[in-house]
Write a protein that binds this DNA or RNA. Structure first.
Lengths: 240, 240
DNA sequence: ATCATTTAATCGTCCTATGATTGAATATCC
DNA sequence: GGATATTCAATCATAGGACGATTAAATGAT
């Protein structure tokens, strides 16, 4: 069953397989998974591999093994929501819009605060690291006036670099990591989202305003600009 | 070596053992751990157990295994900071004060926002769930005027219950989980901190103000009250 | 000197056997 | 008959050994 083409480790494949089945409800909460031997047969892997997969899933809060009774699927309230994988899985197959709104709520909170901190604390080097992807974004969009040859994937990567640079500049690695993880989770889940170049061109103005405020050391301005950006994100969120 | 008294699983013991040695610098960043056979001998466990431990540590971002070269200790920038274990370990043996300040910074951000959301959204049931531990806190402190028989551990648990109830009432499980995890990490790391009953009695007023605002649906008031509480925490943080 | 080949170290995977834990069935005793 | 102790069986937990896959480094060929 395990396709030869995967370069990921076998246990990662099995882990995701089981996780998705839990997410989809194939293995309902509060019930037990098939026992280890059965799972090994089903997925055609050794017990060692299976156990590595389940250990990690345990750590993510999806399951909990007990001798004699089996491996229990944990209720959603136990899931480790700021595990990058869980977040991605949940956004992909689960509640969709409602949860996405909650993630966005937290992202706005975190990233705006990071912007404020960045304005207060960042160094010239860090300012340059923020400026560079910003310029690239602007270039890509002006070059895209003809409508065609616009590489959306690349644009997303550059946009990500811009925001990551700001979070790094907050000098609070905890803040940065929360923000980056959530941004990545959302990115991978909603890839093909805003294809409207015009909307993106609008948003560049706001990006630039955010950068200018950080550069000027204007903490409140940076905070406000970041909130503004998220207001736009909020508006483009799918409506229920 | 593994003490028989542990009820934790063996791999958890080994995992923590290795993690702490990484934290303490016994296994420096960018170097490789001893190979699997050597580690098995050293810790007197089977390879399966060792591998379960390393899989989880990989997931936490502390190490990364590659064939032929070995298991590399990852730089701190790769560590999964909002993994509850990593957070606890880091607070226990690592940078201490500086990192604690950063955690507190994020906690204030998260918990205050949660308080705001709770004020806007919480149900009567949830209000009751917040009120109960608050009353208990007050009782414990008034009963403690004689100075002696004050159970600090219990008090901490009740205080935790109060704040957890608020975060639950935010109706954003993501927000709640970030807040709760950080609070627990800090709790286990700094247990014996404020033993001054008088300080606690002061803080009850602020707790009550926070509760009243939530009960009244006063979002801004709840937010402000929460910030005030954290200002007090901030003042009692060890000075460098 | 450059490139291809071989080698060896290490992790990756599989297999089988045995131990430990614990819920449930059974037997014992009052 | 009911409570308590005992036995049983299912499941995970741990051990140990064997072989495969990957790849950095040593070696050899051009």
């Amino acid at each position: 069953m395990p396709p030869k083409a995967y370069h990921r480790k076998l246990y990662e494949y099995i882990m995701e397989e089981i996780a998705l089945r839990i997410l989809k409800g194939d293995y309902p909460s509060e019930t037990t998974l098939p026992n280890e031997d059965a799972l090994c047969k089903e997925y055609q892997v050794s017990r060692g591999v299976l156990r590595e997969a389940t250990k990690v899933l345990t750590q993510k809060g999806l399951i909990q093994a007990r001798p004699k009774v089996g491996t229990l699927v944990q209720p959603r309230s136990n899931w480790n929501l700021f595990d990058a994988d869980v977040l991605t899985w949940k956004l992909q197959v689960d509640g969709k819009v409602e949860f996405l709104r909650k993630v966005t709520e937290v992202r706005r909170l975190i990233e705006s605060e990071a912007a404020r901190c960045a304005a207060e604390r960042c160094s010239p080097t860090e300012i340059a690291a923020i400026a560079e992807p910003l310029e690239e974004m602007a270039e890509m969009l002006t070059a895209a006036t003809d409508g065609s040859r616009f590489d959306y994937e690349t644009y997303l990567a550059v946009d990500m670099a811009f925001h990551m640079a700001i979070m790094e500049a907050s000098h609070n690695e905890l803040l940065a990591q929360i923000g980056v993880t959530m941004r990545q989770a959302v990115l991978s889940a909603r890839r093909l989202d805003i294809h409207n170049v015009k909307v993106l061109q609008e948003s560049v103005k706001d990006h630039r305003r955010l950068f200018t405020a950080i550069q000027a050391g204007d903490a409140q301005g940076a905070y406000d600009a970041s909130r503004l950006l998220f207001d736009a994100v909020w508006r483009h969120l799918p409506q229920r």
